[in-house]
Write a protein that binds this DNA or RNA. Structure first.
Lengths: 158, 158
DNA sequence: TATTCTGACTTTCTTTGACTATTATACCGG
DNA sequence: CCGGTATAATAGTCAAAGAAAGTCAGAATA
């Protein structure tokens, strides 16, 4: 249950706390969790990706480090167009969910709205090639985003 | 003749108790009952389907799980399964919008939520035959409905 | 005969280890 | 003292093994 990767993710997020970034030694962390160092890379890749809103900077060699930076929230003004660009013609489910979570963080949508949007992103039942699903998902997400930003402009509170 | 499936069903329902959901390991449960793991899937499919008012979420791989969530009936006895049947494999935009409006009338969704759902139903940009769009729409709508009827209280943590 | 149950096969997610790449530092010849 | 080179100390990559859960056709059973 409490998976190694999940624990490492939590550990890092705890380290971040209120700050916007954290720096660590990959090998030390691996040792702390008694795992292979590359496990750390796995966690970073699957939980701290760009789509999750993080950037990883690192350096090898003596005194090397891994720095995890939480991206600052983008200006809401052009957020819609930024997101539209980011989505493009297709998007995978994970990235879509990350975008929705971002909206939630920015309080542009309520928790329930985010959940509904997220559910619209899971098309697992559809018997289609993944690439086609990504195209469909992009279309649906963009449509919903336009709606959300219409609401946001009005400043509606449901 | 207390059938194995019946026992498993009862076991799961006991686990749920008053709660709205329960999480378990498929293999552990199978072992507990000394049966094939796929037996669990059979029980889930035949006793915990959407029409029974449940949704199943799961994850594979290390640390995998199966989560069984009981839906909210909200006095509208079996509205969800009625709607699911009504939607079937495809649905046109007009009917979808009608269903969403119905949910709004019943105050099962807020106005904003309804707007978002409706926007997810308009796939005009998509260069696809109408029939294909209807299939896609059905899939997205059903997915959102499941979310709406989930028992999670408003403002709940996932 | 319809329902239940199983097993082989598939898919997804995690973890590891061997190999590679980069950087800092120590060491050397000039 | 300077510049280059070897060495050590890091981190990165990738493929393969491991650890779950899913699917489905067919056997077993009520």
């Amino acid at each position: 249950m409490a998976q190694l990767s999940d624990n490492i993710e939590k550990f890092i997020k705890d380290l971040m706390e209120e700050g916007t970034q954290v720096e660590l030694r990959r090998n030390e962390l691996a040792q702390h969790f008694g795992c292979a160092p590359s496990q750390i890379n796995y966690v970073l890749a699957t939980r701290f990706s760009i789509n999750h809103g993080y950037v990883i900077e690192s350096r090898r060699g003596g005194g090397g480090y891994v720095r995890i930076v939480r991206m600052c929230q983008r200006n809401e003004d052009n957020l819609l167009s930024v997101l539209m660009n980011q989505i493009g013609g297709e998007i995978d489910e994970e990235s879509a969910v990350a975008i929705i979570k971002h909206l939630l963080d920015l309080q542009l949508v309520t928790r329930n709205e985010a959940l509904i949007m997220r559910s619209a992103m899971q098309q697992d039942a559809l018997a289609l090639p993944v690439s086609a699903k990504n195209v469909l998902r992009a279309s649906v997400l963009k449509s919903m985003l336009k709606q959300v930003f219409r609401n946001a402009q009005r400043g509606d509170k449901a």
